[in-house]
């Protein structure tokens, strides 16, 4: 299903405001003018298309021309792909069909835009106040991000160590090694049985069988 037009408009307004923070990115949009990326979110049954134009990009519910590249995945995998830039490869869970280079260029453009909240706030609040507000916001953001990560770590530890709902990495590793050992022992046993069945004459001797 195509995304509602108002959702596309909101996405377009946000994307263009972001891209216009960096003038060289707009030049790249002009260079890519007419090329199109189709984005599908199967979990939400939504598709939308981003077409590059000289002044940025327009977002439409359907691609007006055959899309150069089609990207399908979860919202988080799409965000990860955009946040990580083009140098980090395509994240897991993202299905890309078509011109991967165009997607790479778009990711590089998004990554190249540096959003500086201080610069954005300065005209409204003045330089000193903008610095303090931006610094305060950064601290709150860092604190929230750190605590969220710690909470996830502690939750996982509780599920591993206290309730045993999750297996520990070390236990899983040991278990895998034991399975490998059991598989090797089974192979050896099968080889010995074959040798006994054949009277111990025709089976090729290998180091593994005498281990």
């Amino acid at each position: 299903m195509s995304a509602p037009s108002v959702l596309c408009a909101a996405a377009e307004i946000a994307l263009n405001r972001y891209l216009r923070l960096e003038s060289s990115v707009i030049e790249d949009c002009a260079r890519l003018s007419g090329r199109c990326i189709e984005i599908a979110l199967p979990s939400a049954s939504l598709t939308m298309a981003i077409e590059f134009i000289p002044s940025g990009a327009r977002v439409m519910p359907e691609s007006p021309v055959p899309a150069d590249v089609r990207v399908s995945g979860t919202p988080s995998s799409l965000l990860t792909a955009l946040r990580a830039g083009s140098g980090s490869g395509i994240p897991a869970g993202l299905d890309v069909q078509g011109d991967v280079e165009l997607l790479g260029e778009f990711r590089a453009m998004v990554a190249r835009v540096g959003f500086d909240p201080e610069e954005w706030l300065a005209p409204m609040l003045g330089g000193v106040a903008a610095h303090r507000v931006a610094d305060g916001l950064k601290r709150i953001f860092d604190w929230t991000r750190g605590n969220t990560r710690r909470m996830a770590d502690h939750g996982a530890e509780y599920l591993r160590e206290e309730t045993y709902d999750l297996a520990r990495g070390r236990d899983v590793g040991e278990w895998i090694e034991e399975v490998e050992d059991a598989r090797d022992a089974l192979d050896r046993l099968e080889a010995r049985l074959r040798r006994l069945e054949n009277g111990g004459n025709d089976a090729p001797a290998t180091g593994r069988e005498h281990a």
Partner: peptide, 9 residues
């Protein structure tokens, strides 16, 4: 005009 889109508000 081309690429005409309608946005209902």
């Amino acid at each position: 005009f081309g690429r005409t889109q309608v946005y209902n508000l």
